[in-house]
């Protein structure tokens, strides 16, 4: 009984937070808007963690104290993370996060806020077109864009690591537009 009231309270809190998260990355803004944020922040993970957005969020550790955050079984954890942490796709040569992924990234931030122990590895991938070395740089920037976005939503930078695989590890092996689109991605590995 008491638990379900808590649960409702938590959901309500999360929803109200979602309203307040401000940053929308619109395609029309091009790479510039996002790159602007990345520029100058220097230390990874610092950006946004001290911001009003971050402070506004429900603190994950509070939730755990209330007996919620840590209660997901291994199975539930797997199901939830694979449902929430779906690939963010990018345009050819692009590393700005398209506005269509806003809701998905919000859900990831919410999940992480509710789980005190989750660590996220963001992998940046590229399609097979383009040169190997440039694609390592491009993949790095894709992963970094996604990390910056999550940090701007209040997720601690310390919980997110990034890695670039360039075009070295394509998920989709065919040589066509469909596969290229699927391979231009930020992929998530979430561990407890």
């Amino acid at each position: 009984m008491k638990k379900s009231i808590l649960l409702i309270l938590v959901v309500f809190l999360l929803m109200s937070c979602a309203e307040k998260k401000g940053i929308v990355h619109d395609d029309q803004m091009g790479g510039g808007a996002l790159e602007g944020e990345m520029d100058g922040s220097g230390a990874d993970g610092e950006y946004g963690s001290e911001s009003a957005l971050g402070k506004d969020r429900v603190d994950g550790s509070d939730l755990e104290e209330n007996g919620f955050g840590g209660t997901l079984s291994e199975q539930e954890w797997k199901a939830r993370t694979s449902e929430i942490f779906t690939d963010v796709l990018f345009g050819f040569n692009r590393y700005d996060v398209s506005s269509e992924y806003q809701h998905g990234l919000n859900a990831m931030a919410d999940f992480l806020a509710a789980q005190s122990k989750g660590m996220v590895k963001v992998e940046g991938h590229c399609d097979e077109r383009g040169t190997r070395e440039y694609n390592i740089a491009l993949g790095d920037q894709r992963a970094q864009s996604v990390k910056n976005y999550l940090v701007s939503l209040g997720v601690s930078g310390a919980r997110i690591s990034t890695v670039s695989y360039g075009k070295e590890r394509p998920m989709c092996k065919e040589h066509n537009e469909r596969c290229w689109a699927l391979n231009r991605r930020a992929h998530f590995e979430v561990t407890r």
Partner: peptide, 9 residues
Amino acid sequence: FSSTKSGSP
């Protein structure tokens, strides 16, 4: 070399 030491490569 190129490095992401300060954010972008």
